[in-house]
Design a binder for these strands. Structure first.
Lengths: 112, 112
DNA sequence: AAAATAATTTCATATTTTTTAATATATTAT
DNA sequence: ATAATATATTAAAAAATATGAAATTATTTT
């Protein structure tokens, strides 16, 4: 559905004004695609391992097969992840590594 | 409940590893506190106007009274917003302006 | 071709989140 | 004290999301 969720979200945020209800809804919709423990784990794992099959992810995350597949399918549909089939396996990777920055930027803000 | 959602989220992210399920869940929980159109609107509006009463926000966002109140109450509980009573009015403000950076950083990342 | 493996899909259920309506509380104005 | 205004709370309904089980598809191995 979405080519690249990060770029998409970025575009929305760039052009959004507080009173633009639609844009805000869309940005929220994108954020919700990652606002889940398992999904954050997927993102964090793939930021380290580059590419992993569903079963490899399953092992790492200790997540039930079907549930993980549901999450992966949806994250792919929303442009968070990429998927490549090789034989029996499906290898998932981050569509855009910059998505990690959503986490990193929070990390690197100089607070007081 | 949470003193400052941003700081809290920051701490979690700083110390989180892909395999730390609990931390990931907590980070996701925090992100969900802002992954909603109305809530993003509140944040964006308060980043411009500093402090607004519920009815002022209501007007700006064109959001039903009770619904807005629910959102505000929850965002306050999760440390996103601050609230100050003055007479009949309750003035809400961002607890930590850096929360805008969650949006801004997405905006300012140099892509590809 | 049958069995095995990897992953997705479908469907039903559970849980969470959002929304609405009605009521309650707190403060100020009359 | 009563009425009016601003906001919060409670309770219920509606909508969205997450979860798990079973069936299905795709590919490889035997």
């Amino acid at each position: 559905m979405y080519e690249d969720m990060f770029i998409h979200l970025q575009k929305i945020i760039r052009t959004m004004l507080p009173d633009n209800t639609e844009k805000m809804e869309e940005a929220a919709y994108m954020l919700r695609a990652i606002s889940n423990g398992t999904r954050l784990q997927v993102i964090a794992t793939l930021s380290e391992k580059e590419e992993l099959s569903v079963s490899q992810l399953q092992e790492q995350l200790n997540c039930e097969q079907s549930l993980l597949s549901h999450h992966l399918t949806d994250m792919r549909a929303k442009g968070v992840l990429n998927c490549r089939r090789e034989g029996k396996n499906c290898y998932y990777s981050l569509k855009n590594k910059q998505i990690i920055q959503i986490l990193n930027c929070i990390n690197s803000c100089n607070c007081n």
